[in-house]
């Protein structure tokens, strides 16, 4: 899996309440959720995000509520990949389950700057900063998770018998 896009950078502890505020949880339509994505943290996100862009963030990205609306909103807004120093665990599994690519890489999260052009090859565990030429290494997903992602998420994995 390869992803290329420009970085949109955030700090530590970006919580699911700012990713998609609860006042919008009266719907689960991805495009409606995307239209309010990051609203309480960054009002400019929705207008500047472009298809394929990559979010980079600090520690504990996606902490707080279990709302799957958060990764759904991010994915529907066009973000192809989230690189963070660490993820809150429910967000982590939600992202895998719905097929939003995520990767933990503290070095990349620190070094990549807002607007940098980034290319990530998750199969081989390499992230490249095309703006600076720097390269960062990540660990590939465990086989079990890889299988879920390759099958297109948890629902598809169960539907085709890959997870029983």
């Amino acid at each position: 899996m390869k992803y290329t896009g420009n970085a949109i950078k955030y700090g530590d502890n970006v919580d699911t309440d700012v990713i998609i505020p609860a006042r919008y949880l009266n719907t689960s339509v991805p495009s409606e959720l995307a239209s309010h994505c990051m609203e309480d943290l960054d009002k400019t996100f929705v207008s500047r995000v472009k298809q394929g862009d990559i979010i980079t963030a600090g520690l504990n990205f996606g902490c707080g509520s279990s709302r799957e609306h958060a990764p759904i909103a991010i994915k529907a807004s066009g973000i192809s990949l989230v690189i963070a120093k660490s993820f809150a665990r429910i967000f982590y599994r939600n992202a895998i389950n719905i097929g939003l690519a995520i990767v933990e890489c503290p070095e990349a999260a620190d070094d990549i700057k807002e607007g940098d052009s980034v290319e990530a090859d998750l199969d081989n565990g390499i992230i490249r900063n095309l703006t600076t030429g720097r390269e960062y290494r990540t660990s590939p997903f465990p086989e079990f998770i890889q299988k879920i992602i390759e099958n297109g998420g948890l629902i598809a994995s169960i539907a085709n018998g890959a997870v029983k």
Binding site: S66, E68, I90, R93, L154, I155
Partner: peptide, 10 residues
């Protein structure tokens, strides 16, 4: 433990 909606569905 808390999970998301897809985990709940499965």
């Amino acid at each position: 433990t808390g999970v998301g909606s897809t985990d709940m569905a499965c």
